[in-house]
């Protein structure tokens, strides 16, 4: 396997079952709450198309499902359309893994591409994932999302 040029990894421990966390990651009724109105659209089967759609209807990201093993592992081939320079970097891979540990699930998100010092990976998803996953964790543990400024 070739080594990615740029890679951001975020790990969070969330008091939930893997099934509940999987649903929160894949169902728009959850994502809209903790991810500023964003909806993922996919059947989540291997080979299926995948999109992230903003509240305005604009398609922010497109791609496909490379691997799907609910509720354990999901790999998405991911192209961002929000900034020209991000799009020019080409496809990234986002690997999402869920592992039960005690009363929590260890959620690991590894987002990588083959662009050296990638602005998409380090500025884009590197600042995005900590905020999104913090809000998701609050939703599942307290019933309330975080309101980001």
């Amino acid at each position: 396997m070739s080594q990615a040029q740029s890679r951001f990894v975020y790990v969070s421990y969330i008091r939930a079952t893997p099934e509940r966390l999987w649903a929160a990651l894949t169902q728009p009724e959850f994502t809209k709450q903790y991810w500023s109105g964003v909806s993922p659209i996919s059947t989540w089967e291997k080979g299926a198309d995948w999109q992230l759609v903003l509240e305005s209807g604009r398609v922010a990201d497109t791609g496909s499902i490379l691997e799907s093993d609910p509720p354990r592992r999901l790999v998405i081939q991911w192209l961002c359309h929000m900034r020209e320079d991000f799009t020019a970097e080409g496809y990234s891979r986002c690997t999402i893994e869920l592992e039960p540990m005690g009363d929590a699930v260890e959620l690991t998100i590894a987002h990588e591409n083959d662009h050296p010092n990638s602005p998409f990976i380090y500025e884009g998803v590197g600042t995005g994932w900590p905020a999104i996953i913090s809000s998701l964790k609050s939703l599942l543990e307290t019933g309330e999302v975080l309101t980001m400024q």
Partner: peptide, 10 residues
């Protein structure tokens, strides 16, 4: 946020 820490077996 919840008053309870996590029990993580690691």
């Amino acid at each position: 946020e919840t008053g309870e820490a996590l029990t993580i077996k690691m």
